[in-house]
Design a protein around this nucleic acid. Structure first.
Lengths: 220, 220
DNA sequence: CGAAAAATACCAACTTCTTGGTATATGCCG
DNA sequence: CGGCATATACCAAGAAGTTGGTATTTTTCG
């Protein structure tokens, strides 16, 4: 016998039979993959998952009865150690976000390279995540857009780098004394910077400073 | 002559001379890349950028005088059509975020494939972004963690409705006196509720209360 | 160089928050 | 009924933040 390799047990859900059979062949051509179940709709997928407790569930999104995303949600809550990979035609942001919120560990487009699907199944088994390049690109750009909502505007630009430093520490809830100790400054100096911050930003308390920092994405 | 290809004009900043020269050779082996300037520190980089108005500035982070990130900031504000690519040893999250906030269009690790750097330079020229796979992975996972912090609850459930009311107002930065006036209570009562909040949530200052509220999405 | 900006530092008066107490009234559940 | 949770209210000491001053040194930039 060859060397023993731990088999990865896979559940496959797609409402189009030929597609599903094709996928099955593709996956089973990997020596460490075993397809332990198939489902033609979301409800079946959940049932089969509970029955077979697979390592990975590969779910199409567009399925009758229960969508892949809803199925994902239930599978994850019923079988916490089953990793869900969504296999979808759409790179639509809404789908991706819903899949992520549902707890999917991977999101693959159907036009991905076969190698990507294989790789995805391997890595989600190790608790990691895997996304089609298009998807990660989308998420990253989203993230960046998010991060930079601050960048375009106002008074924040007036702050000096020291002030921004103080702003950040202050907004983390540290006292002047703590900040002074951390930066090796006199508490009086910190106080001065902080008061300059308040003035420049037209704020009037530590609380407002924190809320400002949160809004500007300086922290959190 | 061969077909005309628009040259991409590049500024290169790295404080280690041999590294810089090596990079220069690597980049100039691409027929459509022209290195129009080199800099050995951040200040020089800013100056050269203003002088040569390159299409792309490739900046190391660890440089004397002015870090690559600060240099990026200035270059972007002085030469808005220069795309900045950060080339760094560190995949440290803090650096990446600061680079993004500064407006960098790309973030490459120094151990990237050469092809990635070449690709990055091409795509940032078209206004798109490029990140090392490790970096996008990190950002994506960050994003996911973010998305999913909602809903996983604890001590918040212990709060009474009156306490939640106080929590919200408190977290909006109102003083006890203001809250008391708003709810028609004695400031002493508000103080008691607030201290119960702090105890139940194991917090110890108004600042922490605000940060808690933000994390719990009680406010935004 | 010289002026402006930034960073550093100090004092004092006043406000607000924090924490240690204590106390009463009300409604709910076993 | 009798406890328990909740909501209400008060006092006082000490910690922290706010505001109005002032002042020196370093850095930056025209």
């Amino acid at each position: 016998m060859g060397t023993y390799v731990k088999q990865i047990r896979i559940l496959l859900a797609d409402d189009h039979n030929v597609m599903r059979k094709g996928l099955r062949l593709l996956l089973e051509s990997e020596s460490d993959f075993t397809v332990v179940g198939e489902a033609a709709d979301g409800r079946q997928a959940v049932a089969k998952a509970e029955e077979t407790k697979p390592d990975v569930a590969v779910l199409d999104i567009a399925m009758p009865n229960l969508s892949g995303i809803e199925a994902a949600q239930r599978i994850i809550s019923e079988c916490p150690h089953t990793a869900v990979v969504i296999l979808s035609m759409h790179s639509d942001e809404g789908y991706v976000l819903r899949a992520l919120k549902a707890g999917a560990k991977g999101y693959l487009l159907k036009d991905s390279a076969e190698g990507d699907l294989i790789a995805a199944i391997h890595v989600v088994c190790q608790g990691k995540t895997f996304f089609s390049p298009e998807i990660s690109k989308m998420l990253v750009e989203d993230y960046i857009r998010e991060i930079r909502t601050r960048g375009v505007d106002d008074s924040y630009e007036l702050l000096t780098s020291r002030e921004r430093e103080i702003l950040q520490l202050s907004a983390e809830g540290r006292t002047n004394k703590e900040i002074a100790a951390a930066l090796n400054l006199s508490p009086y100096t910190v106080e001065t910077h902080r008061r300059n911050l308040l003035e420049k930003l037209d704020l009037h308390s530590a609380a407002e400073l924190i809320l400002y920092a949160v809004r500007k994405r300086v922290i959190s």
